[in-house]
Amino acid sequence: MSGDRISRRAFAGGIATLALAHRAKAQGYAGLGETADGFAKVTPGRLFTFPGDHGPHPDFRIEWWYLTANLVDSSGAACGLQWTLFRQAAKPGPQAEGWANQQIWMAHAAVTRADTHRFSEAFARGGIGQAGVAAKPFAAWIDDWEMKGVERTDDRTLSPVTLKASGNDFSYALTLEADRPVVLQGEAGYSRKSERGQASYYYSQPFYRARGTLIVEDIQVEVSGQAWMDREWSSQPLDTDQTGWDWLSLHLSSGAKLMLYRLRQKDGKDHPFGNWISATGETQMIAAGDIRMTPKANADVAGRKLPVEWQIAIPSRSFSISCKPLNPKAWMGTGFSYWEGPISFTGTHDGVGYLELTGY
């Protein structure tokens, strides 16, 4: 295992210093497996309200706005985009002004095709306007990367919004629209991460239709497809013996959606979680005992063996698929590194999605 293990669900602390003096292991990374004294706690029964919950929750230690898109260009070639904004509170308590503000922001952007994977990373301090999120009108930004609402953005669907980001050798600009409300993950938005109380608040907008442009090495193409946004916040999302996770968001050709992940433990007793989302937006949790997530093939990436091909089964739904990555080398070699990239799947159902691997 490497010490370079972090991503959306592991973004939780070391950047609070911005010194990045060392790359912490997953459990030591500002509270993934530590106590959350002074920060707000995640408890069942929260009443979600919009647009308020589209905005930041600074009393909690960690938070993210995380979007992935499965697209095709005008020639029919597949590609994927990632746009992520993370917020981290360096310490609890009232929000300080200006440079003394304890909120630290980090963002990742990526483009993945079969022949290339490009990524970029940005950091910012809270309190000075360089990065932040506003609930109404919705806007999430860091420097000139942004996910932004327009005059007619609906609070229930968080749609339409525009999205843009750029790196040294790529850029993209999308418009995202959805005609169904956001969906609450887990137990009415309470997403349990262990049997001992670790949890997050978690909702998604898995119904975005995406359209826009992608530029790689000065070549511009039109792209369109589907996108999925995750919103999650917590103060203590993992337990001390949890080492990482394998997470999938799946767009089924039927119009249904599926979110699955397994949290890996040191003793090998991994814990799977899942949520089935119908084409009309109704959700149903999947019992842990009904989820089979089996790695089928590894890829050698960044000095690691990563399980990039999977067999997924949910017997109660007669669901059995094989997942393959568009590009096995989709390594996010950012300051806090992980694997994230688009996948396709076939079997009893077919479609596309995204896979994230952390802790390897």
Rank of each mutant, 00 (worst) to 15 (best):
G3C: 10
R5N: 15
I6Q: 11
A19Y: 01
A21T: 14
A24F: 06
A26L: 15
Q27H: 05
Y29D: 15
G31N: 01
T35L: 05
A40I: 08
K41M: 15
P51D: 06
G52T: 11
G52V: 10
D53F: 02
P56D: 13
W64K: 01
A69E: 04
V72Y: 02
D73N: 14
D73T: 10
S75T: 15
A77S: 13
A78Q: 11
A78N: 07
C79G: 02
L81R: 02
L81D: 03
W83C: 01
Q88I: 14
K91G: 04
G93V: 05
Q95K: 10
W99K: 11
W99P: 01
A100N: 13
A114W: 01
A114R: 13
T116L: 10
R118Y: 11
S120Q: 07
G129S: 06
A131N: 07
V133H: 05
F138W: 05
A139W: 00
D143Q: 12
D143Y: 11
D144Y: 03
E146Y: 00
M147N: 01
G149S: 05
E151A: 15
R156K: 13
T157W: 03
S159P: 05
K164C: 12
A165Q: 06
D169P: 04
F170E: 01
F170L: 04
L174F: 03
A178C: 04
R180G: 02
P181N: 06
P206I: 08
R209D: 12
E217D: 15
A227P: 10
M229K: 09
E232D: 01
P237E: 05
L238I: 06
A256K: 00
A256G: 00
Y261T: 03
R264L: 09
R264E: 04
K269E: 13
W276D: 03
W276N: 00
I277A: 04
T280K: 06
E282F: 03
E282L: 09
T283E: 08
Q284M: 12
G289V: 12
M293P: 05
T294S: 12
P295E: 00
V308T: 15
V308M: 06
V308W: 02
I312V: 15
R317S: 06
S320A: 14
S320V: 12
S320M: 11
K329R: 09
A330P: 00
G333Y: 07
T334S: 14
G335M: 07
S337Q: 10
H349K: 08
L355N: 04
L357V: 13
G359R: 03
Y360T: 11
